[in-house]
Design a protein around this nucleic acid. Sequence first.
DNA 1: GGTACCAGCGCCCTCTGCTGGTAGCTG
DNA 2: ACAGCTACCAGCAGAGGGCGCTGGTACC
Length: 658
Amino acid sequence: MAETEVSDPLEQFTQIKELELMPEKAPEKEEEEEQDGVCRVKEHPCPGEVEAESTQGALQTGIPEGGQGPEPVTVEDSEKHLLTLQTVPLSSEDVGLQEVRWHQEGVQAVVPQAVVPLADSGQQSLLWLEDGSQQSLHQCVAVNLQDEVYLLQEMELMQFPVLEEHVAVAGEDGKSAASPDEGMALMKFEKGQKEDQPEPVAEGRDDEKQFFLVEARLGDEGRNEIVLTISNLNIEEPGDKPASSQPHVEKDNSAKIQNKTQGKRSFHCDICKFTSSRVSSLNRHIKTHSTEKSHMCHLCLKIFRTVTLLRNHINTHTGTRPYKCGDCDMAFVTSGELVRHRRYKHTHEKPFKCSMCKYASVEASKLKRHMRSHTGERPFQCCLCSYASKDTYKLKRHMRTHSGEKPYECHVCHARFTQSGTMKTHILQKHSENVPKYQCPHCTATIKRKTDLRIHLRNLHAFKDTGMPCRYCSAVFHERYDLIQHQKTHKDEKKFKCQYCSYACKQERHMTIHIRTHTGEKPFVCHSCNKRFRQKQLLNAHLKKHHDTDFIPTVYECPKCGKAFSRSNIMRKHLEKCNSGQKKSTASGKGKRMKKRKPAIPKEAVKGDEAAAEEAVPVKGEQCPGEVMPVDCGETVAGIEDLEEYMSCEMILNMLDK
DNA sequence: GGTACCAGCGCCCTCTGCTGGTAGCTG
DNA sequence: ACAGCTACCAGCAGAGGGCGCTGGTACC
């Protein structure tokens, strides 16, 4: 569009170049047209196979010279014709000018209604229909695109009445011109062979208007091209194939007699396929194509075609529900609602049955929705991600994942949720008493949620072909639960035995530490004094004691004898001995020397039961017998008794575990 | 013209099941 | 301290039920 140069403002109108048969002549024509960059009119034998034609190059505003133009095509009549158009910028002044000219030529109000604003150009484009099959047409049909200006995006389906037909607007030479009086051709909807058909029934007929369905969408060239699909809504007599390839219009036919040969008159709607044996029914039906609505709701100003529709609508305002269910307290506005309700709730009649499964539904729409689960069809595409839904509600629900909306709030803790079901589960599990639990049928486990029970069964009770061996013995199990239960029987076993001495323990890592007492390995080094330790905890304790000026050691005093200990559990053990009179060492110092304490610290202030093991060991005495002790304290002790008390392998290692 | 009946669309709901993150327990 | 395991939990989607409402048609 940008590259289009038009000198004459009137040439800026969108034009339809030609009517062509496809696909027979398509290759030649398309090649020709691509060179010209012109728009096209195409006729599709099948309404459902409308395809956009790509138009390359700049807009060509004229119709080729008479002899050079496309040959008139002869095709089977069809109900739809594809028009490929191009939009051209047009200023508002041009629109006004054009409007005047059209009126001067007696063509009724075409241009203003056909204005299609461009989204971001700030200008407007016009559409009109041009005869593509005959270059020298003198007669045209003016069309009125309803009563409003459509955004292009909205022009998906519309009706427009043919206001005038066979209007002479073109010059004799058939050349495309910039204005109707200069030979501009419009789309012609000819009567063709229809003229010799019986005169339509006049009753209820609108001689001034005819309706066509127009489907408009962007062409391959984006907004530079508009593809219109015009549906001829006339109903043909059975077996009566029109000879003309032209899209045709029966100007004054709003209804026709269909079955004259059988002696029984039937009446046909020209707009749709409605047929009736009664004129009155046809007349009433034809009103359905009219936009006329005369019954307005005084409460919301909504307009309805019939009194019945209006009454039903007003009932929704007033709450009037005349149709009451005899089996329950429900009541409805319409009888249909009551019938449906009874099917759902009482009769359980489900007339719509799935052909692929046992599903049956009360409503056809439910079956239609169900069928998507078989076909996989997902018509509702998320505009923000690749998700597509099978129905509108799921898409709407999905959109909350993008918006972050959480419309459901727990009334207890005010937590918010995206789905009502999630909130309901939350309230049940968090804020309800007597929460039901799900008992595992294979073990004693009770699990809050059914879905988690399923996972439990899958993880622990599913049979596995490949057996799972016990970590501690040669037993093999095919259910994980059995394996775990079996391994628990090994729990109290001190299965790790030292190869150098009689030491045994439950955990392998303890044995690793113990083994270092035999190998002499001391992998933990103090970087301040280069002293080495077999355990990381000992290094940490060393760092606190010797290199941390803020460190205050913990002292536990026996409330009975006053003896001080660095570990609470040791003190408690000592206290048991004190109480039982089996005390072997006392604070009075019967040959036992206590570790020199730091200034007394109130017991309440004593903290840090994690003080290092070496802190717990009284000084002076024997060197820690590393060959039997897992703890490398690096200190001396007052006596073997304290040493044994403190250095119980299990005790220390258990403490370290904590 | 009124009305009953039916069809269809839309909306909201529940139930269900899967998934992934996490806290707590255990070794 | 750490890893592994598992129940717990919220998030999310699939499927279907139920109803509100409007529109079309047949019939009286």
